[in-house]
């Protein structure tokens, strides 16, 4: 039990929260980076390799497109259906291989990215499917290559939906980042476990909840603002409805 009236309590609390927030932002930030780097192409491929898609027949070979689509579907579904707490533990050998250890914030990035990538890939899939096929046709009529269509039509035209999808993804990464605190991953989650739960400090618990809430609020506000900024549809709320907000 921690005594709030003890000398140095508040400065200690502040110090712990500062470090915890830093670790959380670090874990989440790097995980988001990898999530976008892998999830965006994955989502595009997921749509593209469907029947009638842009990459329906890679290298002119239709069955290859079908195989890629099946494999990606399988991977994404698998990634999304394994509970995070299990995934986290199951990934320990992999994490060790990549980072060298499975303890600490850097190690926590691995399971966070692994869980977020398929989630974001689905978000990308939804956003890309929303792009009017007429736009793809118009670009094709102008002689665009498939990559030009992705870079100049599909991604820019779905940007505001992608941003909102990313924001939902980041929110769930923040959620999961709190869970890695249970296995010494650091971050605000670990503060809540170590001080709030194991040492019965309600103040720590409440402070962590408020901090996470503030981070999510800022994030969501930023995403909404950006999405509106890139929308140009005259109806900026249009895309929001299609992004599932639940995790």
């Amino acid at each position: 039990m921690i005594d709030p009236t003890a000398p140095g309590f508040w400065s200690g609390l502040f110090q712990v929260l500062l470090v915890g927030t830093g670790e959380t932002l670090y874990m989440v930030g790097v995980a988001v980076l990898f999530t976008v780097l892998v999830g965006l192409p994955l989502g595009i491929l997921l749509v593209g390799t469907e029947r009638g898609g842009l990459f329906e027949a890679p290298f002119g070979y239709r069955p290859l497109g079908r195989v890629i689509n099946r494999v990606l579907e399988f991977v994404v579904n698998l990634g999304r259906s394994v509970p995070f707490i299990i995934l986290m533990v199951a990934l320990i050998p992999f994490t060790r291989l990549v980072v060298g250890t499975f303890i600490g914030s850097t190690a926590a990035i691995v399971p966070l990215a692994v869980v977020a990538i398929p989630f974001f890939a689905r978000m990308v899939e939804i956003a890309i499917k929303e792009v009017d096929s007429g736009l793809v046709e118009a670009a094709e009529s102008l002689g665009a290559t498939r990559w030009q269509i992705v870079a100049k039509v599909l991604v820019p035209e779905s940007l505001s939906t992608l941003i909102l999808g990313l924001s939902t993804t980041v929110t769930s990464i923040i959620n999961f980042s709190a869970m890695v605190g249970t296995v010494a991953g650091g971050g605000l989650g670990q503060v809540a476990i170590q001080y709030g739960y194991q040492r019965y400090s309600t103040i720590h618990m409440v402070a962590v909840i408020i901090l996470i809430f503030i981070i999510v609020m800022i994030l969501q506000g930023l995403a909404t603002w950006l999405a509106r900024r890139f929308s140009h549809r005259g109806r900026p709320t249009r895309s929001r409805a299609t992004v599932p907000t639940a995790i």
């Binding site: 009017d132 736009l135 118009a138 009529s141 002689g143 100049k152 820019p156 890139f230 140009h232």
Partner: peptide
């Protein structure tokens, strides 16, 4: 693709990029 650049096309629903 190169040949298509010499053939312009306009569409019923315009198909302009909104962004």
């Amino acid at each position: 693709r190169l040949a298509r650049r010499k053939i312009g096309m306009v569409f019923q629903h315009f198909n302009l990029l909104a962004g």
